[in-house]
Amino acid sequence: MRLTCTVNGKVETIDDVWPGESLLYVLRERMGLPGAKNACEQGECGSCSVHLDGILVCACLVAAGQVEGAEIKTVEGLAGATDLHPVQQAYLDAGAVQCGFCTPGLIVATVDLLEKNADPSDSEIREALAGNLCRCTGYSKILDAVRLAAVRLEGAGKH
């Protein structure tokens, strides 16, 4: 089938998509956007997290056919031309990135959280990010990054 959707603000049309393949496969293998990662393909790790029509989802659990006409935002669409998104910058500054395989998904999930809750408590952060596994960091610096991003976004009045 032919699939048309908007990815990071750009309308993309792709032919010969098998409708049962996942949005993750479409992004990674057909659109050349490997930012969303494939660590389990069953919704358990969150490394494939993207925004689909403003909702945080696992791209591995969305069928290609379901995103016809949809608007998708991936980690690749967050940074500006010169500056990183404040959440990306906070992950860097807090040392929340080691191997980085979980990072794109976590950053998208953090952006989602802070859009909905500008000043989350630690337990709200933990509940919101529980679907994003990280094997390297032990999560301490990820929490630091989220708190740092929240403060900076507040300061910048982005909410």
């Binding site: 049962g20 996942s22 969305v62 069928a63």
Partner: peptide, 18 residues
């Protein structure tokens, strides 16, 4: 799709129609 896609991704189901 949170149940169906796992089945599809893991080749456990190959329906003719979705």
């Amino acid at each position: 799709g949170t149940d169906v896609m796992v089945e599809l991704n893991f080749d456990r189901k190959r329906p003719e129609t979705l």
